[in-house]
């Protein structure tokens, strides 16, 4: 077990190093100059060159790379060119909305997907099954920005049930901030429920045909107990996997939804950082996201241990 975790950690480090390198290279392959952008339209090329010098952008690329990797391994992701703040601080400030948004969206997705998925599998071929499957297809096919725009326009602007955008002003307390996340969470929850629903249904279908389910029934157990205790528990592994992936995806920033609802999270940050050519922020976000991804994957794998006693590492 310990050996397994150590092995996985080493693997994680390799993945993160790879991401780090790719991020560094890709970001620098893109044309565009942060200095010229910051100075505005009337600035001369000479001024841009001067600012590049001050920002350390004129160092040879290999030297920039080495200092970047060295610092990153010590937890220093550099200084944002645009904000003139450490990247770690910039990212930390964006973590709260993104993490809560991811959490709420996942909860909403689970509330929609799991019961319907189980019931659809249980009543396979019924009208509810058919409706659930086609609705899930529809929800997965409609782009989240469209759903976001429609919900924003009709539920927020026209009906006034939710704030239209943002994350609250200076005097917003925790609950007001969370209130701003309700509508975007519903949008993301609906969009992300489709995959979980389909996995739950498929996985339950497999299990419900198994011998032990028949045995459980023949012992005279209630249907409720058979489905939730015996079937669901055994169907859980693929469902947990897809939930883990969905959560990782959501935490890495729901780029479009954050943009539409002007939520100051990681997704919004990374789009702005690309437009501003804020190299350290782009790199920093990619590293954090990659680390989160492998970490959540590891957690998911460890979760199997709890769910299925047969799993051994």
């Amino acid at each position: 077990m310990t050996r397994y975790i150590v092995q996985r950690m080493v693997g994680m480090l390799v993945v993160v190093l790879l991401v780090l390198t790719i991020a560094f290279v890709i970001v620098r392959l893109a044309p565009g100059d942060p200095a010229a952008l910051m100075l505005g339209p009337e600035a001369t090329p000479a001024e841009a060159a001067e600012l590049r010098e001050r920002l350390g952008l004129n160092e040879p690329i290999p030297i920039q790379y080495l200092s970047f990797v060295g610092n990153a391994l010590r937890g220093d992701l550099g200084t944002s060119i645009f904000f003139n703040q450490p990247v770690t601080r910039v990212l930390l400030a964006r973590a709260e909305p993104t993490v809560y948004l991811a959490l709420f969206s996942l909860i909403i997705a689970l509330i929609i997907a799991v019961p319907i998925g189980i019931y659809a599998a249980y009543r396979r071929g019924s009208w509810l099954d058919q409706t659930a499957i086609s609705t899930a297809m529809l929800a997965a096919s409609v782009p989240s920005f469209w759903t976001g725009l429609m919900f924003q326009r009709y539920l927020a602007t026209e009906l006034g049930w939710f704030p239209a955008a943002g994350y609250g002003g200076p005097d917003a307390d925790f609950w007001v901030r969370m209130g701003h996340l309700v509508l975007p969470s519903i949008v993301l929850g609906i969009v992300n429920s489709a995959l979980i629903l389909r996995f739950t249904r498929a996985s339950m279908l497999d299990v419900l045909g198994e011998d032990y389910v028949r045995t459980a029934r023949s012992k005279g157990m209630t249907e409720w107990r058979v489905v939730l205790r015996h079937a669901l528990k055994n169907a859980a592994i693929p469902i947990i996997t897809v939930i883990g992936l969905t959560f990782a995806l959501l935490v890495s920033g729901a780029v479009v939804t954050e943009r539409v609802f002007n939520i100051p999270g990681m997704g919004n940050l990374v789009v702005s950082a690309v437009l501003r050519r804020d190299y350290p922020v782009i790199q920093g976000t990619l590293i954090v996201v990659a680390t989160l991804y492998v970490f959540i994957n590891l957690l998911t794998d460890l979760l199997y241990l709890l769910v299925d006693k047969r799993v051994r590492y």
Partner: peptide
């Protein structure tokens, strides 16, 4: 006075129309 950066033009419209 609070200046709120809202990069998406459509979001600025909705925020204005909703009274935000």
């Amino acid at each position: 006075i609070r200046f709120i950066p809202v990069p998406d033009p459509n979001t600025r419209v909705e925020g204005l129309l909703s009274g935000q």
